[in-house]
Design a binder for these strands. Sequence first.
DNA 1: TCGTTAAAGACAACTTGGTTGTCTAAACAG
DNA 2: CTGTTTAGACAACCAAGTTGTCTTTAACGA
Lengths: 157, 157
Amino acid sequence: MTLSAAAGYELPLLLFGGFRAIIDELHGELARRGHQDMRPAHGFAMQAIGFRGATASEVGRRLGISKQAAGKTIERLEALGYARRAGDSADRRRKLTRLTPRGVEALALSAEIFDGIRDRWARTLGDDRVADLEASLRTMVPGETFRLDVPGWFGAS
Amino acid sequence: MTLSAAAGYELPLLLFGGFRAIIDELHGELARRGHQDMRPAHGFAMQAIGFRGATASEVGRRLGISKQAAGKTIERLEALGYARRAGDSADRRRKLTRLTPRGVEALALSAEIFDGIRDRWARTLGDDRVADLEASLRTMVPGETFRLDVPGWFGAS
DNA sequence: TCGTTAAAGACAACTTGGTTGTCTAAACAG
DNA sequence: CTGTTTAGACAACCAAGTTGTCTTTAACGA
């Protein structure tokens, strides 16, 4: 059709490659700083919990997964020491999940590492090209909420 | 630290958002054109099989997953009518997996749709900005092979 | 040539992390 | 007070990875 410089299939590969490179670098650094057991999904789930805490249903809605799946992930986070559940006295159906100090630390550390990675990209590419890349993607990417249903989305039938 | 315009955590979110938007558009279009049952993972696996065919072990190596996992995916592809396995007379251990005509069609259609999506990005952003985006990512993304271990990579402990 | 090594595929058991469906308890609105 | 909605839990199921073991077959070296 169009005489494009690049084959169309390269673009998604490059986008995913960039994502994966950043996330891998993040988790390499997290592991080096005492968070060996954190997985990519955990960071996103903790982000959804936030510093103010959330219920499993809220987390599920924020991440685009069922409340059951969110509950499982929270269970996992609890087992790893990143979150803790406690009853809500005002609404006795709810169980508010809060980040533990370790969870808060991991989240803060992640933000710091992400900034560092972006700095490195800016040093290599130039700050304007990174900003341009971000601007282009902001134009083309519709939603802004991150969906955690990656495994199911990618592979499920 | 640095007075960057964007928070560092946005960059991976935007990259993944772009990837997901493209893949979702691809599969929406594939579904509209008779490939309702194809999942993102299937396309990558079929790409790994290629037009000349491959064994499960080869597919596993190309996708960075175990031969057992590759075998499972091939089984799935076979059940969906996209691939077919046949013995190899020269090496009786091997079982060469080949794409069926339907599989070849899906792969060709995917390439066409990817080109169309890139064209649309180029119309919106300008061809130079898309090319720049690709160039930036080519600089920053290390490997070139696509790893299919997305579910495990993302979520496994 | 023979015996060891390596490779391909199959099978089983397990783990993660999704899904849907069902159930109970609690809140809330009429 | 009653009916609806919501939170959470539990169970069954599925997809797709993993490791480990096994058989068959090929390749290769002494």
